[in-house]
Design a protein around this nucleic acid. Structure first.
Length: 214
DNA sequence: GACCAGGCACATC
DNA sequence: GATGTGCATGGT
């Protein structure tokens, strides 16, 4: 059954086109990016990732043995570099110890189990876990971030202080699980958020969703 | 110089 | 369970 959430998807897709998410050449780059981008502008994350590439350490086994002080220095442009160093180290330990850094070993693990394992890693919350699940491990979970929440509440789907699950439930109930759709839809929300729904943006009324209603 | 950015954990009540 | 706070860089 078609709902307004379907209409919004097509409106955004027509307006912006495909977003080609997640930007990243390897699985690990996507995972690392998911942690580095926590409450951080993507432009800063790109700088940090560029340094990791330049230093040739953007591989699980290399990050595993990289001294914390060096890692902290490399990721400095992404901000919060002390906590993020710990978070990256925690994640890499989990990834290496549980799956040997090998995505094929996750093949027979249920998405819900993987999600719980990720959430148990200190420094990985719901959004980061879901980003890793969707964009790195290709599991059909919908990622809820600040922009998505803001847009959903501004359009009356949830209230402003709704829980993560409340927002996520909307997509579980209205769409059948589809990695490509969830990938594109979330990326489109972020694009819309960046361009039109900034906190003090005077452009909110001009966004393609508002324009279409009139 | 203020404000913002693709969160999360921890302290405190 | 809700609410507040620290974490930090770089662009606008």
């Amino acid at each position: 059954m078609k709902t307004r959430l379907h209409d919004i998807y097509y409106t955004l897709y027509d307006y912006f086109g495909p977003q080609h998410w997640w930007p990243g050449e390897t699985l690990l780059e996507v995972m690392v990016g998911a942690i580095l981008t926590q409450n951080t502008n993507w432009g800063n994350v790109k700088k940090a990732i560029a340094v990791l590439k330049e230093k040739d350490v953007l591989e699980a086994h290399k990050l595993k043995i990289l001294p914390r002080l060096k890692l902290a220095r490399y990721i400095k442009p992404a901000g919060y570099y002390t906590v993020k160093t710990t978070r990256l180290k925690n994640f890499i330990s989990f990834w290496m110890e549980t799956y040997g850094g090998n995505v094929r070993k996750t093949k027979n693990i249920e998405t819900a189990v993987l999600r719980e394992q990720l959430l148990r890693v200190n420094g990985i919350g719901q959004e980061t876990a879901d980003s890793i699940l969707l964009y790195a491990l290709k599991r059909p979970v919908f990622v809820i971030d600040t922009y998505t929440k803001r847009i959903l509440s501004r359009h009356g789907f949830i209230n402003e202080n709704a829980a993560y699950q409340d927002a996520q439930k909307l997509f579980v109930q209205n769409f059948k699980a589809d990695v490509q759709l969830f990938n594109e839809y979330h990326a489109l929300f972020v694009r819309l958020g960046k361009e039109f729904c900034l906190k003090r943006s005077p452009r909110c009324a001009q966004c393609p969703l508002h324009a279409k209603k009139q």
